[in-house]
Design a protein around this nucleic acid. Structure first.
Length: 155
DNA sequence: GTTCTTACA
DNA sequence: TGTAAGGA
């Protein structure tokens, strides 16, 4: 239900982006990321990045903001000394990790509290441990983050 | 004016 | 890989 609403929203945003041509040219990507147009065309030939499908009928390539971020991340890995292919692998893995984290948070985060010096994230009950307790991540500035099992409150 | 491909250095 | 040529 919630997921349905969310994908509808994303679809509407995509439609608006398309009708308003909220897309970036190769020059935009190049100037923003300092990756040359030559390099971007090379990355495309290698299959690392893809122009939007709608640009297949166009004269020029068009890129999404998502692609901009991907290029930026790949380049940051390249700047760190990784080879291009490794940089691409790392950016793919980073993206998957981000998706997994979003999934985890959306799926399991039951409560969130802001503390004086940090945060508490309540992930609810842990299967097979204790149904009356919740797993809580406690993050405090200057201290190691820890997980605790806390008795459920009635309020 | 920008982007495209091809080709040369 | 940068740059130039010559078109779109």
């Amino acid at each position: 239900m919630k997921k349905q609403m969310n994908s509808d929203f994303i679809q509407r945003v995509k439609n608006i982006m398309k009708t308003h041509d909220f897309l970036l040219g190769i020059g935009d990507i190049a100037s923003a990321t300092k990756v040359s147009q030559r390099q971007l065309r090379y990355w495309e030939k290698k299959g690392y990045i893809h122009p939007t499908k709608s640009s297949e009928e166009r004269r020029h390539r068009k890129y999404s903001y998502h692609t901009l971020m991907k290029v930026s991340m790949i380049q940051s890995y390249v700047d760190s000394g990784y080879t291009l292919s490794v940089a691409v692998e790392k950016s793919s893995k980073h993206e998957e990790m981000t998706n997994a984290l979003k999934h985890l948070i959306g799926d399991r985060l039951r409560d969130f509290n802001i503390l004086e010096d940090g945060y508490e994230l309540d992930f609810g009950a842990v299967e097979g441990i204790s149904e009356s307790k919740n797993l809580v991540a406690v993050i405090r500035e200057g201290k190691p983050t820890k997980f605790i099992l806390r008795e459920k409150s009635d309020s």
